[in-house]
Design a protein around this nucleic acid. Structure first.
Length: 524
DNA sequence: TCTGTTGGTT
């Protein structure tokens, strides 16, 4: 663009900022300033809004300096934009300072500082601002309601919702979102049904709520009911499939979105979910296609996308490529570290996993349950029993209660090391119901060590929990065969003669367990 | 001109 005059430049910045083109708005502002043009309060407030949205800390602070230089510091729109900028950055000290210096404050100024306190989680200060406000509009009420929602205080949210003089869709959506965050999907649905005017945001919030509680069918139903579907709706549904271990359906929907009759261009959010689906399928090829597709669309890599790719490469065994991406991250967060630790764990690089964990702790990033799944997997893979046990018991020191999956890994670790009795005792000590994976780990270990005593116990539980999985039968059969024994409740099957004709099959047994019939055979 | 409710990664 040629150097614009003040008027057209200002208009363009306002237009760009109002239409979500924040980077372009800020770039134009910089261009105008560099060409020595006199800046208007309109250009400054729009540029500040842009900096707040793209979290351009340095950009916003340099505009703040220029505000003094140009003598704009008494203009309410500019000051409000500054309060909003610092609030969005989480710098509440400066936001408050600018706010307190304002001679004239409008409702937007009050809403901006209110938002800041709510965002930083300071509910007490937010409440005091809310109470002091000379005038409240629907945005003030909505902000306070969503603040209570995020703090899981739906009683207060509900009380405000009842008191508010006027409500719009955002008020209802804030209530729905609050109930979703509290895991109260039924109550969220009640508000969803009761609201006079539902919009896409209401539907997206419900879909994400159903996704979080694993109710994919209800999410799908809502999605299908929508006539015009936008990018956000597709993203919510694709994410729902990816988050609920249904990667194939995530792909199908992604594909549908690209069809000429729908023709919606995916964005970073879409691709992050699709990459997660690739990772679940172990489809490295599709993942690298996504990388080139990103270049084609001009979508730049961000840390979220890079983390999804790290997970994909690591799970597919390309640890070096994963490390490369990991080192290139702007900011290494818990999820990124966890993806790397899991990747190293799966690939038997226990030392690397431990090193990453220590590095993470040094950076004061605290582990969660998934991080420990990665670490325990690492110890398990290389058979470091004592270290694994220590790691498992250290979870409580980090304020984490091991899940059934963590117990499962420990059972596997102890079991493979031949410590079958300890593994069994660990299962008995579980505070929750062990799932088939836990008993399956013990059964597998019994097969490795040919132990009938615990093998029978484990198999019985596996049969009960997953009667349709045939693998457990053959494991047990192999345990019996290895010691030349058959269970008391096992009797020869009439099919034996037929089966004996099959190659590689010596004998075939059919047994009854709790009114269900099972069969197993012994290979040559 | 400045403010709120929605979708992503382990």
């Amino acid at each position: 663009m040629q150097n614009p005059d003040v008027f057209s430049g200002t208009c363009t910045i306002r237009f760009l900022s109002r239409h979500g083109q924040f980077r372009e708005a800020f770039a134009l502002y910089v261009q105008m300033r560099r060409s020595g043009l006199c800046l208007s309060t309109f250009a400054v407030s729009s540029a500040l809004k842009a900096c707040a949205r793209i979290v351009n800390k340095m950009g916003g602070m340099s505009i703040h300096a220029q505000v003094h230089k140009y003598g704009f510091c008494g203009v309410v729109y500019v000051q409000t934009a500054l309060v909003d900028f610092y609030s969005k950055l989480g710098n509440m000290e400066t936001a408050r300072k600018v706010f307190d210096d304002m001679v004239e404050k409008n409702v937007v100024s009050w809403n901006s500082i209110l938002f800041g306190y709510l965002k930083s989680g300071d509910l007490a200060l937010a409440e005091s601002v809310f109470d002091q406000m000379p005038k409240k509009d629907v945005i003030s009420w909505n902000s306070m309601i969503s603040g209570y929602g995020r703090a899981r205080n739906m009683e207060q949210a509900c009380s405000l919702f009842r008191q508010m003089p006027e409500r719009n869709s955002a008020s209802w959506n804030a209530m729905i979102s609050g109930y979703v965050d509290c895991g109260k999907i039924e109550l969220a649905r009640t508000f969803f049904e009761a609201m006079p005017q539902r919009n896409n945001i209401s539907v997206i919030t419900m879909i994400s709520g159903y996704s979080k509680c694993g109710d994919v069918d209800s999410a799908c139903k809502l999605f299908d009911q929508m006539g015009e579907k936008d990018l956000f709706l597709f993203n919510a549904m694709i994410a729902c499939y990816a988050q609920n271990s249904r990667p194939k359906e995530a792909f199908q929907l992604f594909n549908k979105m690209l069809q000429p009759n729908v023709n919606i261009q995916p964005d970073k959010m879409t691709l992050a979910s699709v990459l997660s689906a690739c990772s679940q399928l172990g489809d490295l090829g599709f993942g690298t296609w996504i990388e080139s597709y990103m270049n084609q669309l001009g979508i730049s890599m961000d840390d979220h996308l890079a983390t999804a790719l790290i997970d994909l490469y690591a799970k597919c065994g390309s640890i070096d490529k994963a490390y490369e991406l990991f080192h290139g991250l702007q900011k290494k967060d818990l999820v990124a570290y966890t993806a790397m630790i899991l990747g190293c764990g799966i690939n038997g690089r226990a030392n690397d996993a431990i090193k990453l964990f220590e590095e993470m702790m040094d950076a004061q990033i605290y582990p969660n349950l998934v991080t420990f799944t990665g670490l325990l997997t690492a110890y398990n893979h290389v058979g470091l029993v004592e270290e694994g046990y220590q790691c498992f018991t250290s979870m409580r020191k980090h304020g984490l209660l091991p899940s059934a999956d963590h117990y499962g890994i420990m059972v596997d670790l102890l079991g493979r090391a031949g410590r079958l009795e300890e593994a069994y005792e660990l299962i008995k000590s579980m505070p929750m119901q062990p799932h088939a994976g836990v008993w399956g780990a013990l059964l597998l270990a019994c097969r490795v060590h040919n132990n009938v005593e615990f093998g029978e116990i484990a198999a019985k539980h596996c049969f009960e929990l997953e009667p349709d999985t045939s693998g457990y039968c053959s494991l047990l059969a192999n345990i019996y065969a290895s010691v030349g024994r058959y269970p008391s409740w096992c009797r020869p099957c009439w099919m034996m003669s037929k089966v004996n004709l099959l190659e590689n099959v010596q004998s075939f047994f059919f047994f009854e367990f709790q009114n269900k019939f099972y069969c197993f055979w012994e290979g040559q």
